[in-house]
């Protein structure tokens, strides 16, 4: 993993902690969101922050259907950010 990716991962973890209102120290990629007590109202806050900071729109729908863990959110966010950056370059 490059440094830039490490930074992105760390920033995303901080974003999930801040918007999901959980301690950063409690969060790790394999943790299930349910176990962190991150619920639908917290989800939309996380997605709003992703839009504000990275310009990506993720609907609470098919995009999120298989999201169960923190890692799932990180993967989804990174995929969307990459797509968004590619679109902007085109």
């Amino acid at each position: 993993m490059t440094d830039a990716q490490d930074d992105l991962t760390q920033n995303l973890l901080e974003l999930v902690a801040r918007e999901g209102m959980v301690e950063l120290s409690d969060i790790s990629p394999e943790k299930r969101l349910e176990d962190l007590d991150i619920q639908s109202a917290d989800f939309v806050m996380i997605l709003m922050a992703l839009e504000e900071e990275y310009g990506v729109y993720i609907s609470v729908d098919n995009d999120l259907a298989d999201v169960e863990t923190v890692q799932d959110i990180l993967t989804l966010a990174k995929t969307k950010i990459e797509e968004h950056q590619k679109e902007n370059q085109e």
Binding site: V44, L47, M48, Y57, I58, S59, V60, D61
Partner: peptide, 9 residues
Amino acid sequence: WELLRVMTA
């Protein structure tokens, strides 16, 4: 509605 994120893009 956008912020509720139930709309498709």
